[in-house]
Design a protein around this nucleic acid. Structure first.
Lengths: 228, 228
DNA sequence: CGCCGCTTTGAATTACATCAAAGGACGTGG
DNA sequence: CCACGTCCTTTGATGTAATTCAAAGCGGCG
């Protein structure tokens, strides 16, 4: 598949003309990564940003004691590392693949040159950064104002990844990683999974969760109820 | 003071031509707020964004139980509420003045029209959003990976607000608000202040903190040491 | 089959929040 | 200028969600 049509299909580049996509294609570099490979680490010099074509990448922070807080899990079509292009020079977090992945890499300078000439591209980018900001805001809210069961309930309700049954959530990541995303550790998550199953909020499988009581989860996530 | 020269002095609008500043001035609206006044609340429809001229505004989230997590405290020259202009329609958090404040308000539609025609304005905006993102990332890190003494130490080290003595931090906000910014409550902050004073890391005054052991604070903030 | 990473379970510990109450600072009105 | 009320700040006693440490199943993959 040629690179221009790949680029035209990426949400960030929606609304761009064929020609604009071609100039993007001219500066884009394809890269392939295997599972558990590091793309960059916190503090690294930034020389561009990425868009995922296939696979899955986590953006995360590590504490000195080794605890991991995942900021985002990025899937196909999603860009990451853009913030370092426009502010600062180094990455504020680390990135690592969770699965074999193909990505496009856009070198910093060429991209900045392009964006100054394409108002709709910069508007798209502003929209993406703003959404990212919103997601992070909500993560802060979860970490600071909710306890773990509430965070997990919110995750289930918000993560609309259903195939045909809207009540079955395909996790798509290990419970280990999920713990890191929720700002806790696997042991705690496991215990909460058990309690929520006992109290019939959910039915927990190996790689999927079935929602039994949507309203109950909503109450949990909003702090109007707690596990007993 | 005329509005064009005010606008020309705002960092977000740095590098714009006189004429561009004039068109911005044409759409900007001056607003004055007294202390403890709400500018908008989480969920409100967004119809534009703000820039502070004088005063101080906090951006925050409230939990159902009434705990408050402050996301940012904005001072003169800083914009806020921009994310809602480019993504979503409603504000993801609330804003309230901490002091009597004068702000400029930019209506959404006129501003979007302007930004599509001014590449340097959109680049500036991208840079600001990216920095905001970076700050939020660091807040997430603090909340998830550090305990309260570490967060406070990081706050002291990072908040470079000194007058002449770099070791004296003018808080500028009540310890109540500071607790909300650090993701804790006033009681806890008070206790930590006491312990850090006892162990000679700092000397705590009513509205300012003196740093006695910068290296010690750094160790605290990085988790390489703890209070005993 | 055997190993390594994921997941679960239990017991002990802890940082922090909660509840309650008393000082202190500050500004307003008398 | 003092008195009063309100908000900010501090302190203690108590409670609890969550981490830590340790260990044992479980499961997939080479």
């Amino acid at each position: 598949m040629n690179i221009t049509s790949i680029i035209a299909a990426i949400p960030l580049f929606e609304g761009l003309t064929q020609q604009q996509c071609e100039s993007l294609g001219a500066i884009a570099v394809r890269r392939n990564y295997s599972r558990q490979q590091s793309l960059f680490s916190e503090g690294d010099e930034s020389n561009g940003f990425y868009i995922i074509l296939t696979g899955k990448v986590k953006i995360f922070k590590l504490s000195p004691e080794g605890k991991e807080q995942i900021l985002h899990i990025m899937g196909p079509g999603e860009p990451f590392g853009e913030a370092a292009v426009f502010a600062g020079e180094h990455f504020p977090a680390s990135a690592r693949t969770l699965a074999e992945s193909k990505v496009l890499f856009f070198p910093r300078l060429s991209f900045v040159a392009l964006i100054t000439k394409n108002p709709s591209l910069s508007l798209n980018m502003l929209a993406f950064l703003s959404r990212r900001l919103r997601r992070l805001t909500s993560l802060v809210e979860d970490l600071s104002l909710k306890e773990v069961p509430g965070r997990f309930a919110a995750y289930l309700l918000y993560s609309g990844k259903h195939k045909n049954d809207p009540d079955v959530i395909e996790l798509g990541i290990s419970k280990n990683q999920l713990a890191g995303l929720l700002g806790t550790i696997p042991e705690t998550l496991s215990r909460i999974l058990k309690r929520m199953s006992q109290e019939k909020f959910i039915k927990a499988g190996v790689r999927h969760i079935q929602i039994l009581d949507r309203e109950g989860l909503r109450e949990l996530s909003e702090g109007r109820r707690r596990l007993s």
